[in-house]
Simulated scan of single mutants.
Amino acid sequence: MILPFDFHRDPFLILDFTDNNPELAGIDLTDTKVFTNYVFGKLQRNGVVVGVGGYNEHRVIYRRSPHFNQTEEPRCIHLGIDLWAVAGTPVFAPLDGVVHSFQDNNHFGDYGPTIILEHQWNEKPLYSLYGHLNRPSLAGLRVGMPVKTGQKIAEIGPFPENGDWPPHLHFQLITDLLGHTGDFPGVCSLTDREWFLAICPNPNLFLQIPGL
């Protein structure tokens, strides 16, 4: 359990942020309040408190931020799963590990406060990344600090401190951090898609959300 929801019992909504969702064309995604009202309005209308989805999704929402358009080929493929829930929702470690690194990636459209944990999985290193947290989540952390399965490690942050997104957790698994600390690409280009997917396995390995 990463958030305080049982996805086999509690209702949830799979959110679509691709070109297949015509609703996005009528929304000013650069206005985070408008974007937030859209996301949580959909959750409310469907009678749920959490939205999910995104792994390997070809998204249009990254056009809102220069952060994803700094190279000749823009980044548009999402490498984690997003869990859209209200700010302050607690985040729990999915398995034992240690704090690898953390930092506040404070740019519009970026992760905001971010934590990376290091685990052993099948006798190999595995890293889990938690993005869009609140700033108090980073207080008191130190590299190498042990964490236990089910331990609260953070809280989902509000905008703008969460990178200026509607409140949600970006959860990503990584087998090779490529030298990064406190940060790692959560979105890649179409050209790099297969390469990044090979080192960023599907987070539903731990989440076990039906239908993803």
Rank of each mutant, 00 (worst) to 15 (best):
Pro166Tyr: 13
Ile199Ser: 02
Thr30Ala: 06
Ile77Cys: 12
Ile77Ala: 06
Leu197Cys: 15
Thr32Pro: 10
Tyr127Asn: 02
Cys188Trp: 03
His58Met: 00
Thr175His: 14
Arg193Asp: 02
Trp84Val: 09
Pro136Tyr: 11
Leu43Tyr: 09
Gly109Leu: 09
Gln120Ala: 09
Asn204Pro: 11
Ser137Glu: 03
Gly131Lys: 11
Leu173Ala: 02
Gly182Ala: 12
Ala25Gly: 15
Ser189Ile: 04
His67Tyr: 15
Trp195Glu: 07
Phe7Pro: 03
Val34Met: 12
Ser128Cys: 10
Phe68Gln: 06
Phe40Glu: 07
Trp165Ile: 11
Gln172Val: 04
Tyr38Ser: 01
Asn204Met: 05
Ile77Trp: 10
Asp110Ser: 10
Phe206Thr: 01
Met1Cys: 04
Leu212Arg: 00
Val99Glu: 08
Lys33Val: 06
Glu118Phe: 01
Leu177Glu: 02
Thr32Asn: 14
Ile77Arg: 13
Leu129Asn: 03
Pro146Cys: 07
Asp176Val: 05
Gln208Arg: 15
Tyr130Trp: 05
Asn56Tyr: 10
Ile27Asn: 03
Leu173Tyr: 09
Arg193Ile: 04
Leu43Pro: 02
Thr149Phe: 00
Asp6Ala: 08
Asp104Gly: 03
Leu207Gly: 13
Pro4Cys: 10
Gly26Ile: 00
Asn105Trp: 03
Leu212Ser: 01
Gly80Thr: 12
Phe17Asp: 01
Pro136Thr: 15
Thr18Arg: 01
Asn69Glu: 07
His168Arg: 01
Ser137Lys: 12
Gly53Ala: 09
Arg59Asn: 02
Ile156His: 05
Lys148Gly: 00
Thr30Glu: 14
Ile81Cys: 05
Lys33Pro: 00
Asn134Ala: 12
Asp31Tyr: 02
His100Leu: 13
Arg64Tyr: 08
Met145His: 14
Val52Gln: 11
Gln103Ser: 08
Met145Gln: 15
Gln208Met: 10
Gly179Trp: 11
Val187Pro: 04
Tyr130Ser: 05
Leu95His: 05
Thr149Glu: 11
Val187Thr: 15
Val147Pro: 02
Gln120Cys: 03
Val147His: 00
Thr89Leu: 08
Gly97Asn: 06
Asn56Gln: 13
Tyr62Phe: 15
Gln151Phe: 13
Asn105Leu: 04
Gly41Asn: 08
His168Gly: 12
Arg45Pro: 00
Gln172Ser: 11
Ile153Val: 05
Pro146Gly: 13
Leu13Asn: 01
Leu141Gln: 03
Pro158Tyr: 14
Glu155Trp: 08
Gly51Arg: 09
Met1Arg: 06
Leu126Gly: 05
Leu126Met: 14
His107Arg: 14
Asp6Cys: 06
Gly112Trp: 08
Pro94Ile: 04
Thr175Trp: 13
His78Met: 11
Val50Phe: 08
Asn46His: 14
